[in-house]
Amino acid sequence: MKEVDARGLSCPEPIMLTAEALKSGNGPVKVLVSEPHQKTNVEKLAKDRGKKTKTKEIDTGFEIVIE
């Protein structure tokens, strides 16, 4: 699974990196972010692209898997 580790990066980098990963492949993408608003942004981006997400809280933030 492709992984985007955007933990600790400032906005809008997490969303840019996620968009890039979604563009460059068809498989699922795992995104790691630190802040709650970044989690929401990534989920929103996936929804806009018609994709489903599964999110869980991890020690260092959030892990979002975009299917």
Binding site: G8, S10, M16
Partner: peptide, 13 residues
């Protein structure tokens, strides 16, 4: 600049 890859790097806890 962001599109060209600008970043100030990661912050840590």
């Amino acid at each position: 600049a962001l599109k060209k890859g600008f970043s100030l790097g990661r912050s840590h806890d």
